[in-house]
Design a protein around this nucleic acid. Structure first.
Length: 630
DNA sequence: GCACCTCGAGTTCA
DNA sequence: CTCGAGGTGC
């Protein structure tokens, strides 16, 4: 490997990027760097029954105004979604799905996949082509890898998908190469200068271009045919050399797809029919209670450990008291367990016939399991909560939330550190975090010189987090990350927000009476006010600078007109237009000279061209988001 | 008033 | 991923 790179460095002209000797190599330093997808990588809505499939079909046919909807059925390979980029027909990059917007760079590892074309068989390839597909391991390879791992005493992979994911996360592409991953492509992420009539046509094009597409695809014209395909493969799945977990059904015509549109999570023109999950039975030994940061008391089932879908399950959430009643789950029951989405364990139902009478019904206690305080379940609500504002469990969870990544992002302040700081009485609330010095930090177990330094610096850095993060971190009920962003877009400081009236708050898009009340109540509470004051004293930034100069003011779009075009991914169209209105601007549907900004989403239409010809400012959705949130 | 989306909050295991 | 709940549009 070293030598290969050295040769390349010495004689770059001798090596073309698609040379067969170049499967293993690349820039290790780029590995796993974040990569922004050109268009969001969505997931799919699921159907678990014929009924749900029917509901999907009814919805699309009513929205399209016809029962005649041609659909494409494809097997749903149980692997890892990847995005592949080709520039002028040459493979230049690959990324994982990540959160859909930003994935990780796995260019070097994907390059080792033998069936990946390094150069496309196209006369005039598009300047940029991004295709999406599934990297997977055959059942055979999976077995072999696990056998080797067993011999080496390494932990086994639970299933081919985990093994495939693990293989793509290798720092050394040579390891990935030895795993012999397969690859099927099935979708277009982005392409310059080409258009297709439908999914079927796209698949044929991808095949011609040199990609592997899964051979088991079919075009159908009715719901019944689609369902037959699902049933057929549910039966035959075991005869395939790779694992599948369902069938994907897509509306074939791209014109119809466009008409149906997207939600922020998934296209509305496709659905994944999922085969029934693997189920096991085990005994429910006990029901434990957890107290969350809002005081919510959540019952969790403690199970006799059992292997389900490749991993051992020992606990499963039961959500709330009603859920337990509805399913009639009792302590001591034999229960059926499965994994929702193959990840989160779930109790499906008890096996009533196995009862011997010793089972006990669950009763939500009136006393908090953590502090003994009162547990109250308000009329009409599902969740029971500990109402003691001094409950140590609530305070602990609150601190964890405050320091978490989406909030103040204090690296090093995890469960163990928080627990010790609280137990030793060094901190009592989140504001005390900012009064810690190195000496106090050294008192924490496992915190030597360096760790204490790191944490101290992380705390210092967190004082500069944007207003939205701080508002989220405060833990105001009903104010999650999203609402916090909205609030930060409407108020320039904590101070201003704390003086807002209910009327002012309800004016804001996406803030209704409940959220307004919760905010008012939060700032009414003395203890909260003093925490905020302590944070301010410590130097935590409580306001945000307005974007200055010629740019827009984050507070006001007064007199400005916005037009949205293309599919938005960060907001729904309604939200985006609502935000503009709530900030005093106008959202219009057609572009004119008077339009101030055209915000382009995915696959922008003619409005984009018009804006260009009129010289109207064109901004991306990200730019728009920054404008809105300051 | 209802249906539909989102969001919030809690959660599992490796 | 789940459920429950808040907000919005018809």
């Amino acid at each position: 490997m070293r030598e290969l790179i050295d040769i390349e460095a010495a004689h770059p002209e001798l090596i073309t990027p698609d040379s067969p000797t170049q499967r293993v190599g690349g820039e290790p330093s780029d590995a796993f760097k974040p990569v922004r997808h050109r268009t969001k990588m969505l997931s799919l809505a699921n159907a678990f029954s014929f009924g749900e499939l029917t509901a999907f079909f009814n919805r699309i046919s009513s929205e399209l105004g016809t029962e005649k909807v041609e659909m494409v059925c494809e097997l749903k390979i149980d692997g890892v979604a990847v995005a592949l980029t080709y520039e002028h027909g040459i493979y230049t990059g690959a990324a994982t799905r990540g959160d859909g917007e930003v994935g990780e760079d796995i260019t070097a590892n994907v390059k080792t996949i033998q069936s990946l074309p390094l150069r496309l068989f196209l006369g005039s390839p598009p300047d940029i082509l991004e295709v999406r597909g599934e990297a997977y391991l055959s059942k055979e390879q999976f077995k072999q890898i696990n056998e080797e791992r067993e011999e080496d005493g390494q932990p086994l992979f639970a299933n081919p998908r985990n093994a495939a994911a693990g293989s793509l996360r290798q720092l050394d592409p040579k390891v990935t190469s030895r795993r012999h991953l397969g690859l099927f492509v099935y979708a277009l992420g982005y392409a310059t200068g080409i258009e297709f009539p439908d999914q079927w046509g796209l698949l044929q094009y991808l095949k011609t271009a040199g990609f592997k597409i899964n051979p088991h695809i079919t075009k159908v014209g009715t719901l019944k045919e689609a369902y037959s395909f699902c049933e057929e493969w549910q039966e035959k799945r075991h005869s395939l050399p790779f694992e599948i977990d369902g069938v994907v059904i897509k509306v074939n015509s791209f014109a119809q797809q466009k008409k149906l549109g997207l939600t922020s999570k998934a296209p509305r023109w496709a659905i994944a029919y999922k085969f029934p999950a693997e189920q096991k039975t085990t005994r429910l030994i006990d029901i434990e209670l957890n107290v969350g940061r809002t005081g919510a008391v959540t019952p969790t089932a403690v199970l006799e450990p059992v292997v389900v879908a490749g991993s051992t399950v020992g606990r499963a959430t039961l959500h709330n008291e009603d859920e337990i009643k509805r399913k009639d789950i009792r302590i001591g029951d034999t229960v059926i367990v499965q994994k929702a989405g193959d990840v989160i364990p779930e109790i499906v139902a008890p096996i009533v016939s196995k009862r011997d009478g010793s089972e006990k019904e669950f009763v939500m206690p009136h006393e908090c399991p953590a502090c003994g305080g009162e547990v109250v379940r308000p009329e009409g609500e599902a969740v029971a909560r500990c109402v003691n504002i001094n409950c140590p469990a609530v305070i602990f969870e609150h601190i964890i939330h405050f320091a978490s990544r989406g909030a103040m992002d204090i690296e090093g302040l995890g469960e163990s550190a928080a627990r010790q700081l609280l137990d030793k009485g060094i901190i009592k609330d989140v504001a005390d975090i900012y009064y810690l010095d190195k000496e106090k930090l050294l008192g924490i177990e496992h915190f030597a010189d360096k760790a204490a330094d790191n944490l101290y610096n992380a705390i210092k850095r967190s004082k500069e987090r944007p207003l939205a993060k701080l508002l989220f971190a405060l833990g105001i009920r009903h104010v999650g990350s999203h609402v916090a962003e909205v609030l930060a877009g409407n108020f320039e400081s904590v101070e201003k927000l704390s003086h807002a009236t209910p009327e002012e708050l309800i004016e804001i898009q996406e803030v209704g009476p409940k959220i307004a009340e919760s905010i008012i109540e939060f700032f009414h509470e003395n203890r909260n006010r003093s925490v905020v004051e302590k944070l301010r004293q410590a130097g935590v930034k409580m306001e945000q600078e307005k974007p200055g100069g010629a740019g827009l003011s984050a507070r006001s779009f007064a007199g400005m007109t916005f037009v949205f075009t293309g599919a938005l991914t960060l907001f729904t169209r309604g939200e985006a237009e609502g935000l503009v209105k709530s900030m005093g601007g106008k959202a219009s549907s057609s572009v004119s000279k008077k339009t101030d900004y055209v915000v382009v989403g995915e696959n922008p239409g003619s409005k984009y061209d018009k804006a260009k010809s009129l010289g109207v400012k064109i901004i991306t959705e990200d730019d728009f988001k920054r404008l809105v949130s300051g």
